[in-house]
């Protein structure tokens, strides 16, 4: 039974299994497929300048998706990601425009975002309210409050420090903004936390089987709180990156951030049921969303079609997750 051919076919099938089992391979193939299609339809797509633009366009959603990944891994969902980020941009802008030191203004804004995470996390872990309802409520509260504060209007934020994340540097001829670098650093740090520390392992365990996690002595409530606080802190940093992209604080900005960040997480292979997936998939998922929007724009397709296609993508990704779960 152990003929060489049997052995080698076994070897190939284990390699194939490994590949299929590695969660970010599927999304990576999708990303590559989109890149191939768009480069065939428009040669400008693969120009370094365009690739650099895609990265910059991915910065805000890509960063918000880090926090969203953490929360979805615990089987939660965050519908306030855009609202908390906008809270950051408005507060930082208001404070800086009224004469505060910009560094202090940004720090206070990040602190306020983090406080929103403390509120969400406390309600979810303490009162055991469903994350869906809590974050939906926070979305409503923040959105209304911001419109009251800013009297409904957008305003310009012209400050060197607040806009610094949009300034560019050249790396081997490739132009990137400091915002892109900050986003990638955040990915690296949170990846490390998720994959190499006890905290990360407990995030997976709580999302996978909260009862088992509690029985082995993991403080489930405290862990959930820490996840919502860290996620909201990251949304605060995303607010800084957003001010670097567009020097404007707008209470009506980032309306599609919920859909886009959840899409990035889900097409990156993280399960909405919690406990499965990872951050590398999310980065790829965010890039897929960015590539799709950029490629369709280059092809001269109406932006409304981009939302439509994003919507279809997220449903297909969730359906695939559901089907593979059913087989287990």
């Amino acid at each position: 039974m152990t003929s060489p051919s049997a052995l080698s076919s076994g070897g190939i099938s284990t390699v194939a299994k490994r590949l299929i089992g590695t969660p970010s391979v599927g999304p990576l193939l999708v990303l590559l497929a989109f890149c191939v299609i768009f480069s065939l339809t428009n040669p400008r797509f693969l120009a370094t300048q365009n690739l650099s633009i895609i990265l910059q366009q991915t910065v805000i959603i890509g960063t918000l998706a880090i926090g969203q990944t953490l929360i979805i891994l615990t089987a939660g969902i965050d519908l306030a990601v855009g609202a908390i980020c906008v809270l950051g941009t408005i507060l930082a802008g208001k404070l800086a425009n009224s004469g505060y030191d910009p560094v202090l203004a940004m720090a206070l804004a990040v602190l306020a975002c983090t406080a929103a995470g403390v509120a969400a996390g406390s309600l979810i872990s303490g009162l055991r309210l469903p994350p869906f309802i809590v974050t939906l409520g926070i979305l409503g509260i923040i959105t209304a409050a911001l419109r009251l504060i800013s009297a409904g209007g957008a305003f310009a934020v012209n400050d060197d420090f607040l806009g610094w994340t949009g300034s560019t540097i050249r790396l081997h001829g490739f132009v990137v903004t400091y915002g892109v670098i900050i986003m990638l650093l955040l990915y690296a740090v949170v990846w490390f936390l998720l994959n190499q520390t006890q905290w990360g392992r407990h995030v997976y365990a709580v999302g996978n089987n909260p009862e088992a996690a509690r029985l082995v002595g993991i403080p489930v409530g405290r862990l959930l709180l820490s996840v919502y606080v860290l996620a909201a802190f990251i949304y605060g940093i995303a607010a800084w990156l957003a001010l670097g992209r567009i020097p404007n604080a707008d209470p009506n900005a980032l309306q599609t951030a919920n859909l886009d960040s959840i899409t990035a997480v889900v097409i990156g292979g993280t399960s909405l049921f919690g406990g499965r997936g990872g951050l590398m998939g999310t980065l790829i998922g965010a890039l897929i969303v960015g590539v799709l929007r950029n490629g369709l724009t280059l092809a001269g397709i109406d932006p409304l079609w981009q939302d439509l296609i994003t919507g279809i993508l997220v449903i297909v990704a969730v359906a695939l997750d559901q089907l593979t779960r059913g087989r287990r």
Partner: peptide
């Protein structure tokens, strides 16, 4: 009472991970 998505080793040491 196991976390099914985690591997065997992670489950054995769940809540008592070593650094």
């Amino acid at each position: 009472a196991v976390a099914a998505a985690l591997d065997i080793s992670s489950n054995l040491f769940l809540g008592r991970e070593r650094r």
